[in-house]
Amino acid sequence: MNAVRIEKVQVIASAPDPVLGYRKFTFGSFSFERDAYFVHVRWPKGMHTIEVDRFLRAMVRDIGWGFFYGWIFFDDVFGTQNHYGTVDIFAGTYSKGHRDTGVDFLETFNTDDVRNAFETISVNWINEGYDPLRAPMETGSPLGSKTKEAAGPLIRGFEPARRMMGLPGDVTPRSDASGHPINRAFADVTYDKPTIEPEPGFEGQIHAFNLYDHIARADITWNPSFTSITGACICCVTSEEHMLPVIHGNDRNEWFIQLTDEIHWNIQDKNTGNPRGRIVMKSGDVCAMPADIRHQGFAPKRSMLMVFENGTPGLEQRYARGELEPFPITASRW
């Protein structure tokens, strides 16, 4: 079942729960309620329960990524799809069991309304001492009753470079001065600076920086930052520890380049969720993530990952129409 809500939709908050202190939220036909351990999502004819840590880790990244490319599955049942101006919130739409029993539901909203709703929910449900952007070993627990709402920005680390990180007027790499010490997991690496020797008059035109140092200082995980841009080709880097708290379904091809350590990826069919297998990427490995899969990564040790994205507007429609193959290296190139 689908519904389109193109008019402005506001999230409606209940009074705080008298026992746990959290508010319940209604947004369109969905409602969201949390208790000490779980988030309960309800929609016409259906209900689904997600562990609260996983839900909040997924929700804040979905906001920060601007709903990213394609589908963000919070789990196998609930998630969002980005249409770049509108966003679907779905429950059971890509789950055979839900579809077969007619309890699947999808509702489309304006992007700004979804962002506002998710931010409102997240702010109310995230307590001080718990940071869903950090690795689980680096933050407190989201479990239990409401205490004090976390201070500071809900999301961070998403400001994209416009040409290249570190150029005059562009985004600045992380440093001690910016409050980003080297993460414990990368403390064994030596970091130095490139030697930059511009001729007089060419200062600012010759540029380099230590990319690994920037990644090693991330206080967030599974959270790509744009570092360099060629046309619509975006190079993103990110530090990955524990598990990607969403399952990403591509609406285009993307590429992963494993810079350090390793990540294990579970691969599923995008539409059905059926397993296709797994990929273990080690340092120096390069692998495409085709446009017809879902993927979820598991990083046993914090690692550095580079992602090549093609941000060409309208690309998702060309893939959806079948105009482009859902994999990058077409038959004639082998």
């Binding site: 290249m164 990180m165 970091y191 130095d192 600076k193 490139p194 030697t195 930059i196 020797e197 511009p198 001729e199 060419f202 035109q205 010759i206 540029h207 380099a208 920086f209 230590n210 990319l211 690994y212 140092d213 570092t227 360099s228």
Partner: peptide
């Protein structure tokens, strides 16, 4: 000008 870069430098 010139740049001398080592592992991890962009």
């Amino acid at each position: 000008g010139r740049v001398i870069a080592r592992r991890g430098h962009e």
